[in-house]
Structures are given as C-alpha cells and as structure tokens.
C-alpha cells in the first residue's frame, strides 16, 4: 500500500486513520526528540563556553559601562568599501 494511495483516501478508512494517527504521533515524537537534542547541545556546548566566558569576565553584549562618561558609539563594521567578493559572502 503506497503512501500516495493512503493520502488519496483510496484505501479503507481504518488504514487511513491509522496512517494519519501515526503521522501525528511521529511529529510529536520528533518535536520531543528535537527538544532533547537542543537541551543537550545547550548544556553540553553552550554551557561550558558560557562558563568560560563568565570566568574570563568577558562582556559579550557590552552591558557594562552604564552611566560611564564618553560616547557609546562604536565604529561601524561596514567602513570598508563594498566589493563583489564581500557582497557574495553571508558574513
């Protein structure tokens, strides 16, 4: 029995409902699996790096320096003249 036949509803209602039910369960299972993997990546990869950043007291988002004197302007990243090679890059 091909998937296409099932999707067309060409088989009995029972098998069609079974198939659609399985799709629903599989989607939920996939979502749960994704969350587990993301949790592992977050804790196992982002976590240690974040701890290292914290230990080194790096201020990645420049949150410090509130009420400091002087300017909060940064030189723009895009000072260099744009060229075709640079424009081709996604970075």
């Amino acid at each position: 029995m091909s998937t296409t036949e099932l999707e067309r509803g060409g088989t009995s209602g029972f098998f069609r409902r079974l198939y659609l039910g399985w799709l629903e369960v599989a989607a939920r299972f996939g979502e749960a699996q994704t969350l587990v993997i993301l949790f592992l990546v977050y804790t196992a990869v982002i976590g240690p790096m974040a701890i290292a950043v914290g230990v080194a007291r790096r201020d990645l988002l420049h949150k410090r320096g509130l009420r400091a004197s002087g300017s909060a302007w940064n030189d723009a990243d895009t000072v260099t003249a744009p060229d075709l090679e640079r424009a081709r890059r996604m970075f």
Binding site: F39, Y42, I46, V53, D59, L60
Partner: peptide, 18 residues
C-alpha cells in the same frame, strides 16, 4: 553570543529559535 552571555536563562529562547 547572546546565548553565551545569557546562559542558562536563554534555554527556552534557544529551543524555539534554533
């Protein structure tokens, strides 16, 4: 970088965005 700077509070955002 934002996730690094806001660990571990950014887990929900990380799970949604990634």
């Amino acid at each position: 970088m934002t996730y690094l700077a806001t660990f571990p509070r950014s887990l929900p955002s990380f799970a949604k965005a990634m």
